[in-house]
Amino acid sequence: MRLPTLLFALAFAVATPALAQAPKPVDSAALAQAKVFMEKSGSAALSQQMVNGVLMAQKAALEQANPGKTAEIAEVIGLMQAEFAKQIPTMIDAMAGVYAQHFTKDELTEVTAFYDSPVGRKMVKEMPQILSESMTVAQTFGQKIAMEVMIKLQPELEKRKLKMGKT
């Protein structure tokens, strides 16, 4: 499973119970400013990028399990994409609520002002590419470290008569 898939799955796994709980009361002005912040910071685009990562992973898994069914898989991926798209606004609103719990309206106004600056706009523009490159670096680094740790701990696994599972 690729890192974007894991991150997105983790985000939804963590967010789902939180969405089910009664939210803590937040200042409505702070919530409104948090939504402005989410828009200016490009959060929806980043969420869509994560969705695309999940969809690519699902497509690859479906293609591996269903060779020769390219058209059918494309249809299902299109349906999945539509379902994810319906959920992004709700997730963004929930995330705005989290920001509103941690920051006042005035603080969020200051943070939002950064995204109106030239460097803030550049950050929003560059963030999808930075995130993509960072995930590649993290995935490569994570795989390298995992391999090194498993080699180092192989004697411990053998001592406990444990076998490595397939990943």
Rank of each mutant, 00 (worst) to 15 (best):
97 G>H: 06
94 A>E: 03
16 T>P: 06
82 A>V: 03
36 V>A: 13
96 A>I: 13
105 K>C: 04
9 A>L: 08
140 T>V: 11
97 G>S: 08
16 T>H: 14
130 I>Y: 13
113 A>V: 04
146 A>V: 00
110 E>Y: 04
24 K>V: 09
4 P>Y: 00
68 G>H: 14
18 A>I: 13
79 L>S: 10
91 M>C: 02
145 I>P: 01
7 L>G: 11
86 K>P: 12
3 L>C: 01
33 Q>V: 01
82 A>L: 01
143 Q>N: 05
39 E>R: 15
37 F>V: 04
141 F>W: 14
46 L>D: 05
120 G>P: 09
72 E>P: 00
111 V>M: 15
99 Y>R: 11
78 G>M: 06
14 V>Y: 03
146 A>Y: 08
50 M>F: 06
22 A>Y: 06
84 F>M: 00
60 A>G: 02
109 T>G: 01
135 M>Y: 01
23 P>V: 12
99 Y>T: 06
58 Q>E: 14
29 A>I: 01
45 A>N: 09
30 A>E: 14
37 F>N: 10
140 T>W: 02
129 Q>W: 08
40 K>D: 15
22 A>E: 13
2 R>G: 01
20 A>V: 08
41 S>M: 14
8 F>M: 11
77 I>M: 07
140 T>G: 00
123 M>I: 02
69 K>E: 14
129 Q>L: 04
70 T>V: 13
134 S>M: 06
7 L>Y: 10
14 V>L: 05
14 V>A: 07
63 E>M: 07
44 A>E: 15
117 S>E: 14
118 P>L: 04
123 M>C: 13
77 I>N: 09
98 V>Q: 02
115 Y>P: 13
101 Q>T: 10
144 K>H: 00
127 M>P: 10
129 Q>E: 15
16 T>V: 09
54 V>W: 12
108 L>W: 09
82 A>C: 10
83 E>M: 08
119 V>F: 09
77 I>E: 14
71 A>N: 09
116 D>I: 03
61 A>Y: 09
113 A>L: 05
17 P>K: 04
125 K>S: 14
68 G>V: 14
81 Q>H: 06
27 D>C: 01
30 A>T: 06
124 V>S: 13
119 V>P: 04
85 A>E: 05
62 L>I: 10
82 A>N: 07
18 A>F: 07
116 D>E: 04
64 Q>V: 00
10 L>R: 03
139 Q>I: 04
117 S>N: 11
71 A>W: 02
121 R>W: 05
125 K>F: 13
119 V>H: 10
16 T>W: 07
119 V>D: 13
86 K>G: 07
106 D>H: 10
46 L>I: 02
